[in-house]
Simulated scan of single mutants.
Amino acid sequence: AGLSPDQRKAFRQALAEARRQSAADIEAARAGREAVARLIEAEPIDAAAVNETLASVRQADMALRGRLEQAIVTFATGLSPADRARLVDGLRGRSNMLRRAGEK
């Protein structure tokens, strides 16, 4: 919230671009979660298949997270130290990247 309107717009655009680049991973994770639900409901449950599918969902989630975090880092490199501090304040509690950062 402490960034200028232009900076906020640029930040949102950077995150949106990272999501666009991750469209296949987002879809793979969504489809994988649906598959996990079906596998858990199946009788008998195939725990190995559930775990294998969960691993692929995690991989897709981490690929997306990596792109989002890289977009944040790239955006931050163009900010002044004061603006980076405001960015960090805004990310605390909203981003996995900085969740619980600064807590004691």
Rank of each mutant, 00 (worst) to 15 (best):
R67V: 02
R8G: 08
A48Y: 09
A10Y: 08
R33W: 00
A71N: 04
T77C: 09
L68N: 12
L68A: 06
N51K: 12
L39N: 04
A71Q: 03
A28L: 10
T74L: 06
A24K: 10
F11V: 06
A48I: 11
R20Q: 06
A1C: 08
E34I: 09
E27F: 01
V88Y: 06
E17G: 00
L98T: 10
R86G: 10
L98C: 05
L91N: 08
A63R: 11
A28R: 15
A1H: 15
N51L: 15
A55I: 02
D25V: 08
S95V: 05
L87N: 02
M97C: 04
K9L: 15
R65S: 12
T77L: 09
T53M: 01
G2F: 01
A47V: 14
R86V: 07
A85I: 01
R58P: 02
R19T: 09
A48M: 10
A10C: 08
G93P: 00
F11T: 07
L39F: 04
A23N: 04
R92K: 14
T74C: 02
A31Y: 04
A48C: 07
D6K: 12
D25L: 03
R38F: 04
A10S: 11
K104N: 11
F75E: 06
M97V: 00
A1Y: 08
R8H: 03
A71E: 01
Q21E: 13
A31Q: 15
E41T: 08
G32H: 04
R12F: 07
S56D: 13
F75L: 07
D25N: 14
A85F: 06
R84C: 06
R20P: 01
L15E: 07
A47S: 13
R86Q: 15
N51G: 07
R67L: 00
D61M: 10
R86L: 15
D83R: 01
R67D: 01
K104I: 06
A23G: 12
P81R: 08
D83Q: 05
E52F: 05
V88S: 09
E69K: 12
R8V: 09
A42G: 10
D25I: 00
T77R: 15
A18V: 00
T74K: 10
A24C: 03
V36G: 10
P5G: 11
A42D: 09
G66Y: 02
R30E: 14
A28N: 06
D89A: 15
R8P: 03
S56C: 06
G66Q: 13
D89W: 04
A55C: 06
L15R: 14
I45Q: 15
